[in-house]
Deep mutational scan, measured.
Amino acid sequence: EVHFESHGEEQAMRVVKMLKKRNLTVEVKVENNKWIITAK
């Protein structure tokens, strides 16, 4: 499981795309203006 924190939507979306290319399940949450990305 991979956790990634991002402060910007643009950066977060880039990471999500990259993770999805690896056929991982990606969950995105926004907490306290931080984008929290979890990949399994």
Rank of each mutant, 00 (worst) to 15 (best):
T38G: 01
K20Y: 07
V16S: 03
H3G: 03
N33K: 04
A39F: 12
L24S: 02
V2L: 14
T38L: 05
F4P: 04
E9F: 15
I36Y: 08
K29W: 08
A39N: 01
N33G: 15
H7G: 06
E5K: 06
A39I: 14
R14T: 06
E31S: 06
V15W: 11
I36F: 07
I36P: 00
K34D: 01
L24A: 03
E9S: 06
E10L: 11
N23V: 05
E9I: 12
M18Y: 12
E1A: 10
N23G: 15
A12Q: 02
R22G: 08
K21N: 09
W35H: 01
R22Q: 13
H7F: 14
V30K: 11
N32H: 07
E9L: 14
V26F: 06
E9A: 10
L19R: 01
H7D: 13
A12E: 01
V16E: 02
F4D: 03
G8Y: 15
R22A: 12
S6L: 15
S6I: 15
V16C: 14
I37R: 00
A39G: 08
K34S: 04
V15L: 14
V2W: 15
N32Y: 07
Q11Y: 09
I36E: 02
K17Q: 12
N33Y: 04
V28C: 05
V26Y: 06
N23P: 02
N23R: 09
M18K: 07
V15K: 02
S6P: 04
G8D: 15
K34R: 09
M18S: 06
Q11G: 05
E10N: 07
H7W: 14
A39V: 15
E5W: 09
T25W: 13
K17F: 12
E27L: 08
I36G: 00
A39R: 01
E31Q: 09
Q11L: 13
E31C: 08
N33L: 05
E27Q: 09
R22V: 08
V2P: 03
K29N: 05
K17D: 13
V15D: 01
K21D: 14
M13G: 03
K34P: 00
I37P: 01
L19A: 01
V15F: 09
F4S: 02
T38E: 03
Q11K: 06
M13S: 04
L24M: 13
Q11D: 13
K29A: 04
R14M: 11
K20M: 11
Q11I: 10
R22N: 11
V15G: 00
E10Q: 10
H3T: 12
G8M: 14
A39Q: 02
E1T: 13
V2T: 07
V28D: 00
F4R: 03
T38D: 04
G8N: 15
W35M: 02
I36D: 02
Q11V: 08
N23C: 15
T38S: 06
N32M: 05
E31A: 07
N32F: 06
L19P: 01
E31V: 13
K34T: 09
W35K: 01
T38H: 06
A12N: 01
K34W: 04
K20V: 10
V26L: 03
K29H: 10
V30T: 05
V26H: 01
K21H: 07
M18H: 07
F4E: 03
A12M: 10
E1R: 10
T25Q: 12
G8R: 13
K21I: 10
